[in-house]
Design a protein around this nucleic acid. Structure first.
Length: 561
RNA sequence: AGGGGAGUGGUGCAAUGGCAGCACAGCAGUCUUUGGAACUGUUGAUCAUGGUUCGAAUCCGUGCUCCCCUGCCA
């Protein structure tokens, strides 16, 4: 595509890039994707990643993946691999353009020396507490460090010795010399290097014991890589003057930083820190718990990368604070899976049905459509016999108004099977229905009545004799309130965890076509929702996760009554 | 309070001085061998106030509300 191409969607970021190309500020586009390898990716990262990737792609540019590994205390190789895997899964490609902030430690050090020589940086011996106290407050200016006017020679010497490991952690920092009275606190002589001896860095080992701060690394790395556009969270807006100050002082290539609003999703939290807490406190089973908004969790739950991409496109890009309704995410997967997922019949809460006029010991195969939305998906054979399972909720002794399913004196259709008519039912000693006896109409094979009579309800079913046992895990929203972080006084977000966010069903009966499915297999269970075989699933013990339930009009009617 | 940013239906995003539109949610209906899907119709918004203008969501003034910033985190 060319910059003039009007088919490029017109969010304010793409508009800005287009303008930069038109004005000649840049004559190519190169973005960067800068994860810190200190945790797993969540759907909020997916938004940022996709912006970096797709903007570059739309303008025929390049994407640099660059791990922001400037703090050895928090970062691990394990996360590097996990992030790459998740990003690939999302469909993001960066070819061999894979970099690390730590690739630039030597060059960055040289740039720091240049800044000292220009009188724009100094080594400060104040304690962390003194630095903090002297920074001032939002309304009062800070006060200059007593070490601010050291000579260039002394600063050079001290920085060198910091690098050589002569000083303990926290004893000194290198600071930019800007303005302790600035209204923008980021400009009050921000720290550039701090001393960290332990632990060793995941890539550079013990080579370094001084590490750059974000502000003294990110923009410099962008510049070194000749990044044209550096997209980030609005939280970094106040850092932009600093980003530009450093590069101006150095006279180096100037990328353009553009900020956009991070994604907030209702009924969940999108913050590495809080997600980590849930994992650490055992509130969920891990980073890949299917209830987690992490990419790994969502993948395990059965979300497709296409659905996530679609969702990100739908929510758009702006600078407003936002709280996106999770219903939009749910609607998006539903619509994605509706088109691609094959249908199967699985009874979640089985109730036995005996077809009294069906020959004992007989089995026949009935043809079922795999996907009504996709003819090329073909058909399959489903075994039918005298004893079947239907959903417990599909029979009522005393059917309420507008209930279209099985009940006394009612006739319903078994999907792709026959019409069956109620005869009688059996209760156990507790009054619980344990068996329903029906007759079938042999003329309605396949579910059509030659005499044209109609039935209100169509039920899914599984032949008892041919059923495969399965465990099914039903998931619901993780939190009971829209914004768990905006909690009442004295309450923690964990106080709002939905106690019913996981329900495990162990007596489920699946049609035999599901016997051999592998973990990751996705399909729709007719009338129930979209499901995905879990990584715990084996040939001997099938386990399915519910990705999302089908839209349920009946539930709404019931609720309204 | 100092600095920075943002205010459009319930939610998210458009409209770039010229008919306030799209999606999700909601409501009503059609169709239906998934109470699914599809299709049709429909309710509902420019933070307030003053100004500029033939004309303002858009430009200007004032006020209000919300978000971010006082790590040797990113």
């Amino acid at each position: 595509m060319t910059p003039e191409d009007t088919t490029i969607s017109t969010d304010f970021i793409r508009e800005a890039v287009k303008e930069d190309l038109a004005s000649g500020r840049y004559n190519y586009v190169r973005t960067r994707l800068p994860p810190e390898p200190n945790g797993y990716l969540h759907i909020g990262h997916a938004k940022a990643f996709l912006i970096d990737y797709l903007v570059a792609k739309d303008f025929g540019g390049e994407l640099n993946l660059r791990f922001d590994d400037t703090n050895p205390a928090k970062e691990e190789t394990e996360f590097v691999e996990a992030i790459k895997e998740d990003a690939h899964w999302l469909g993001i490609e960066w070819g061999d353009r894979e970099f690390y902030a730590s690739d630039y430690f030597d060059d960055l050090y040289d740039w720091a020396v240049r800044l000292i020589k220009a009188g724009k940086a100094y080594v400060d011996d104040q304690t962390p507490e003194e630095v903090s106290r002297n920074r001032g407050t939002l309304t009062e200016p800070g006060v200059n460090s007593p070490y601010r006017e050291r000579s260039v020679e002394e600063n050079l010497n001290l920085l060198e010795r910091m690098k050589n490991g002569e000083f303990p952690d926290g004893s000194r920092i290198l600071r930019a010399k800007i303005d302790m009275a600035s209204g923008n606190i980021n400009l009050r002589d921000p720290a550039m290097y701090r001393i960290i001896h332990e632990p060793p860095h995941h890539r550079t080992g013990t080579t370094w014991c001084i590490y750059p701060m974000y502000d003294w690394s990110h923009g410099q790395n962008d510049s070194m890589e000749k990044i044209t556009h550096s997209f980030c969270d609005v939280g970094y807006e106040a850092h932009r003057p600093l980003y530009e100050w450093f590069l101006e002082q150095l006279g180096e290539f100037m990328p353009r930083q553009i900020e956009f609003a991070r994604l907030n999703l209702s009924y969940t939290v999108l913050s590495k820190r809080f997600l980590r807490r849930m994992v650490d406190e055992g509130l969920v089973s891990g980073w890949d718990d299917p209830r987690m908004p992490t990419l790994r969790g969502m993948r395990r739950r059965g979300y497709t990368p296409e659905a996530i991409g679609e969702f990100i496109e739908k929510i758009g890009i702006a600078k407003n604070y936002n709280m996106v309704d999770i219903a939009l995410l749910e609607a998006t997967v539903r619509s994605d899976l509706n088109i691609r997922a094959e249908r199967r019949m699985v009874v979640l809460n089985p109730l036995k049905v005996v077809i009294t006029n069906y020959p004992e010991g007989h089995t026949e195969l009935l043809e079922a459509v795999n996907n009504p939305e996709d003819e090329s998906a073909g058909t399959r054979q489903v075994p039918f016999s005298r004893e079947l399972y239907i959903e417990r909720e599909d029979f009522r002794e005393d059917p309420p108004r507008k209930y279209f399913r099985l009940g006394p004196d009612r006739e319903v259709r078994l999907r792709y099977g026959y019409f069956i008519k109620y005869e009688h039912h059996i209760n156990d000693e507790n009054g619980e229905v344990i068996e329903v006896h029906c007759t079938y109409d042999p003329e309605t094979r396949g579910g059509y009545a030659p005499d044209g009579r109609r039935v209100k309800g169509t039920l899914h079913w599984v032949s008892a004799q041919h059923a495969v046992d399965a465990e099914v895990r039903l998931y619901d929203r993780l939190f009971t309130i829209e914004n768990p972080l905006n909690s009442e006084e004295g309450k923690d977000f964990t106080d709002y965890i939905n106690p019913d966010s996981l329900q495990i069903l162990t007596e489920c009966k699946a049609e035999p076509a599901l016997t051999d499915v592998q973990p990751g297999y996705r399909c729709q269970f007719e009338r129930r929702g979209y499901f995905c075989a879990d990584i715990d699933s084996t040939a001997d013990a099938l386990v399915f996760n519910r990705t999302i339930a089908l839209r349920d009009t009946w539930a709404k009617i019931r609720k309204g009554n």
